[in-house]
Design a binder for these strands. Structure first.
Lengths: 148, 148
DNA sequence: CTGAGTGCAAACAGTTTGCATTACT
DNA sequence: AGTAATGCAAACTGTTTGCACTCAG
């Protein structure tokens, strides 16, 4: 997992360096994304900001997420159903993938070097030039398994 | 890739066995999905049917896809952007994953035993009970690479 | 003071649903 | 005949966009 504080600093720095203005709504989105961490929706970000007493229009949340994605500060991850999810990108390059529960929708993260290696080797063999990959495992989370 | 003819037969059989009626629109969707093969949208299916002279409401396409998915005859695959894509499921169990071109959206398929093995091993180690997985590689397709 | 960034509301795209009608079995 | 399945149109959901206003630089 990305260190929330580090990432917020890194993100704000990158934004400033890019000539983007430091607006309150933007900062709120950055900070909410950092707090929520892995695999969050625009709505969740907006709610979290609202819970903190601020108001930020959903449109601004989307615009900020789009910007963060363009700057490689965040990435869109696909949990499957039709709702876009985002998460902070670790500046150090570490990354993880997701386990999604088909029953309750819960998302967990995992890392696996062996998997990464297999993908790296594969990437060399294909005709495409690969610069990103996503892996999603689907099944049932421990909680749902217990509740059978 | 799934053998189109085989799959159509298999799908129709499964549908019949399940007590589902053999309607013309349903058959058209099954056959269109088989023809188009890998990673198609509801709209593409509808267009392809229309091109063959028939008319099938988009709603029926969606309803049929949902049914096929429930019967494990098709699966929803996530190419990333907000449009659901479907493809026939090989009754023999063979499956592949996708390479998506970030520039033109072109989707190619690949298989890799090593990758499957890594995922199988990983699936044993996690707390979730994993029963499906998706891998998507993103990058640029050969055509777009050439067009730099 | 100037334009990047915002909020709102309207526009959109894909998907789902209610209901009267059609057509397998 | 009975009911599963269809088609249409309306409803919905998530996301994007146009525009007037605001505020950081």
């Amino acid at each position: 997992m990305v260190q929330a504080a580090d990432w917020v600093g890194h993100a704000n720095e990158t934004l400033a360096r890019g000539g983007y203005r430091a607006s309150t709504p933007r900062a709120a989105v950055v900070s909410a994304l950092a707090d929520l961490g892995c695999s969050v929706t625009a709505k969740e970000i907006s709610d979290r900001i609202e819970a903190g007493g601020q108001e930020v229009g959903l449109a601004s949340v989307y615009r900020t997420l789009e910007l963060l994605e363009r700057l490689r500060l965040a990435r869109r991850v696909d949990a499957g159903e039709g709702t876009a999810r985002y998460e902070p990108v670790d500046p150090a390059g570490a990354h993880h993938h997701h386990l999604v529960c088909d029953r309750c929708g819960e998302v967990a993260a995992f890392e696996d070097i062996e998997l990464e290696r297999a993908i790296a080797r594969l990437a060399d063999r294909v005709a495409y030039s690969v610069d990103a990959h996503d892996v999603t495992l689907r099944g049932e989370c421990p909680a749902c398994l217990g509740r059978d």
